Structures are given as C-alpha cells and as structure tokens.
Amino acid sequence: MVSHRRTSPSGPVTRTGVTVVSAALATAAAALSGPPASADPAESSAAGRGTATGRLGTLYEEAERATEKFNGADERTRRLRAEVAHLRDRTARAQERVNRMRHRLGALAAAQYRSGGIDPALRLLLSERPDSYLEKAFALDRLNAAQAGELRDLQAAQRALEQQRRATAAKLADLEAGRRDVARHKKDVQHKLAAARRVLHGLPRNVRAAYDRAARSDGRDGMLPGLPDLSGILPTPGRAAAAVAAARAAVGAPYAWGSTGPASFDCSGLTQWAYGQAGVWIPRTSQGQRGAGRQVPLSEAQPGDLVIYRSDASHVGMYVGNGQVVHAPYPGARVRYDPVGVMPVAAVTRP
C-alpha cells in the first residue's frame, strides 16, 4: 500500500521562496537561453529575462494577496447585506405593530368622543410621540387601567421601532463602507494583473511560449519532473475523501480571481468549493481557512488537509498525498498538481 505521507523532509518546507509562476518562468528562461556565453550582451540578456520573470512572479503574488482581500471584503459585504435585509424586515414588522396599536387606541378615542367628549389624556393619540406625554405622571391618573396598559404597550413598541431603525442605519453605513472596500481591492487586483500582463507581453516570444505551456499544464503532463502516480492514494475516509475527490475533479479548470467554481476558481475558492461538495463549510479566504480546523505538522499531513502558504496566509492548496497538493496557482494558469513545498508553508490545517 502506498503511503500518503511525504517521505522527504520532516517539518515545514521552506526551501524555496518563489511562487509557482516565477519558478516555472525561471526554469523556462534558463532552458531557452542555453549555456551562458562569454560575451557580456548574452549575460545581460539572460539577466534581463530573469529580472522580468521575477517581476512577473512578484506581481502575481501581489495580485493574489489583493484577491484574498477582495474575497474577504466581498464576504463581509454579503453578510452585511443579509443582516440589513433581516433588520429591515424586523423594522417593518415593528412599524406594523405600532400602526395597529395606534389604530386601536384611535378607535377608543373616537368612541369616547361620540359618547360625550374625549378625555384630554387621550389626545396624545393624535401625537406621533405619545411617550413624551406619558412621561408626565398626571396623565396616567386620567386613564383607566385598560387605557394605561394600551398606551404603555404603544410606548414600548415605538421605542423598539426606534432601536430597529438605528440598528438598520448603522448596518447600512457598514454595508456602504464594505462596498467601498470591495471596489478598492477589486481595483488593486485589476491594476496588478494589468501590470503582470505588460511584463508578460514584454518577454521574448520563446520565453512567453514556455510560460504559456507551463500555465496550461495540470501537473500531470511531464512539465514537473518526477511527479508521482497518485492513482493509489486513498485519503482519510469521510468528508476529507469527498473533498479530495472534488479538488482532483477540478484539475484543469482555469484560475479566475474571485471565483468559487464550479467552472473556474481562485485558490481559496477551490478549497472552499471542494469542502462544500463534501457538505462542509469553511471560510472564503485563505486567512480564514488557516483557522478552520486543527493545526498539524506538515510531516503528519493527510489527504484533505489545507496547506497554507506564505507568512501572510495569502495562498492555500489541498494536500492529496505523496507530497502533492492540488491548487489554483496564479492568474492565467489552471488548477493543477504541484509539490507541497512549491512555496513556503506557513501552516497545515485539518478541517
């Protein structure tokens, strides 16, 4: 039986500090540039390609960080929108209750008027703020017990209505701030991706072609040497197995920032979707997913564990066994298999 444990190093993997895309591009550039020539122009050209590919990898990292901030702001905005809708519904019900009570008391006042004149205390029914009248204790002396009870209920209902209105207004302000955050982070993502496209288009044609081949790869076509056969890997039974099966079924789907599938994904969108197929909810962002379960050492990783990358937890993949993860690596690429140490590992979480 093939073990799902990683057999090489024990403890966190930190041997590489580059992203998937920068590593792929650096490899492509080195392969295509051939042996270093003694002439300075050739060395300068190779150095220029290395600088450009490194810049591209940095821009994609920055775009991914901005994407996770966008995802977090968007999730908060969705939650606030639902809370505002709930508060508006409660406010509407409170208003209806106040209206019914005022109508009932108004009918009582009209009946008293027809029977010989309205009690002066009941004139407060014509006011929009009967509670200000009720603060005067002498008014209660002019009402019978039933009328006083009705008015106290109305006072309480109006106060509850005001509280609902204030709570709704506060949530609406939060919602508007959230919308501004979403727009700001979206603009940041678009700016980083536009800069990355400019760098990519400035690469030599053969280097750009090598990058395109690497981006289209799903990690099973020989682009990554020594990739083990995962067909015999059996994940932990239950929800982890279902999540791994979903993640592996998504291999080949395109990366799209802000997307949670099923046709395209960003990194945390893939892992959230995969666990959703197993009937398990986990947070939307990679930072949130870091705390979505029990932390385990990398040396004890099991299929279905979430591998969190970089110190700021800005990337996440799913461990699938034999030292491999499935993840949505970077814009322009596809969901793929990669070695678990493709980036510095910050944590391993078992949902």
Rank of each mutant, 00 (worst) to 15 (best):
Val2Phe: 05
His4Asn: 12
Val13Gln: 13
Arg15Val: 15
Gly17Thr: 14
Val18Phe: 14
Thr19His: 05
Thr27Val: 07
Ala28Ser: 04
Ala29Tyr: 09
Ala29Glu: 01
Ala37Cys: 04
Gly48His: 10
Gly50Glu: 13
Ala52Trp: 11
Gly57Arg: 05
Thr58Ser: 05
Leu59Glu: 00
Glu62Ala: 09
Ala63Glu: 04
Ala63Ser: 00
Glu64Ala: 04
Glu64Ser: 07
Arg65Lys: 08
Thr67Ala: 05
Glu75Tyr: 04
Arg76Glu: 02
Arg76Phe: 01
Arg78Cys: 05
Arg78Asp: 03
Ala85Lys: 00
His86Trp: 10
Arg90Trp: 14
Val98His: 00
Ala107Trp: 10
Ala110Cys: 09
Ala111Tyr: 10
Gln112Tyr: 08
Asp119Gly: 03
Arg123Leu: 10
Leu124Gln: 01
Leu124Glu: 01
Leu125Lys: 00
Arg129Trp: 12
Leu134Trp: 07
Leu134Lys: 02
Glu135Val: 14
Phe138Cys: 15
Ala139Trp: 15
Leu140His: 15
Arg142Pro: 08
Asn144Leu: 09
Gln147Ser: 06
Gln147Lys: 07
Gln147Met: 11
Gln147Ile: 13
Ala148Pro: 02
Glu150Tyr: 13
Leu154Glu: 01
Gln155Thr: 14
Gln155Met: 13
Ala157Thr: 09
Gln158Pro: 07
Gln158Trp: 13
Arg159Leu: 15
Ala160Val: 14
Gln164Asn: 15
Ala167Asp: 13
Lys171Pro: 12
Glu176Tyr: 05
His185Tyr: 10
Leu193Arg: 06
Leu193Gly: 02
Ala194His: 05
Arg197Asn: 03
His201Pro: 05
Leu203His: 00
Leu203Ile: 05
Pro204Trp: 01
Arg208Glu: 02
Tyr211Leu: 05
Asp212Leu: 06
Arg216Leu: 08
Asp218Asn: 05
Arg220Gln: 10
Gly226Tyr: 04
Pro228His: 01
Asp229Trp: 02
Ser231Ile: 07
Leu234His: 11
Ala240Glu: 03
Ala245Asn: 07
Arg248Thr: 13
Arg248Phe: 10
Ala249Ile: 10
Ala250Gln: 02
Pro254Ala: 03
Pro262Leu: 00
Ala263Ile: 08
Asp266Asn: 06
Thr271His: 04
Gln272Leu: 11
Gln272Gly: 06
Trp273Asn: 03
Gly276Asn: 09
Gly276Arg: 06
Gln277Cys: 10
Arg284Lys: 09
Gln289Ala: 08
Gln289Phe: 10
Gly291Thr: 14
Ala292Gly: 04
Ser299Met: 05
Tyr309Glu: 08
Arg310Ser: 12
Gly317Cys: 04
Tyr319Gly: 02
Tyr319Val: 07
Val325Glu: 12
Ala328Trp: 03
Pro329Asp: 11
Pro329Gly: 04
Tyr330Phe: 15
Gly332Glu: 07
Val335Leu: 04
Asp338Arg: 08
Pro339Thr: 11
Gly341Ser: 09
Gly341Ala: 08
Pro344Ile: 09
Val345Phe: 02
Val345Glu: 03
Val348Asp: 03
